[in-house]
């Protein structure tokens, strides 16, 4: 079984911006290892020369005419925001503030 350490789990949780408890770290370490063990058949698969598929059908560069159309109503959108002010989303500080 691929070994997934508690440090690995904590690192992945940070990448995913997901706060996890100590108990969740233990549980995820076991469960992720079990699923990845099942996926071990992929690791041993000979895929030399096989291109990856990201999407079932190759539709590329789907463009529309550059014409202005209706868009979402700003007030309706902001009415659903956790916090809004002056027609914008209000969020906590992103950078350190000057003293």
């Amino acid at each position: 079984m691929p070994l997934i350490s508690r440090d690995d789990v904590a690192r992945v949780a940070r990448l995913a911006r997901l706060d996890v408890t100590e108990e969740e770290i233990d549980r995820f370490a076991d469960q992720l290892a079990a699923v990845l063990e099942h996926a071990a058949d992929l690791a041993t698969l000979d895929t030399a020369g096989v291109p990856p598929t990201a999407h079932p059908f190759p539709l590329v560069n789907v463009l529309r005419d550059d014409v202005a159309g209706p868009s979402l109503d700003r007030d309706e959108v902001l009415a659903m925001a956790p916090a809004a002010e002056d027609g914008r989303f209000r969020v906590p500080r992103i950078l350190g503030e000057a003293p």
Binding site: L42, A43, L45, T47, V50, P52
Partner: peptide
């Protein structure tokens, strides 16, 4: 090892 191989497996399935 995981995502890239899974995408290639997808090709083999198709």
């Amino acid at each position: 090892a995981y995502y890239g191989q899974a995408q290639r497996a997808r090709t083999l399935i198709i």
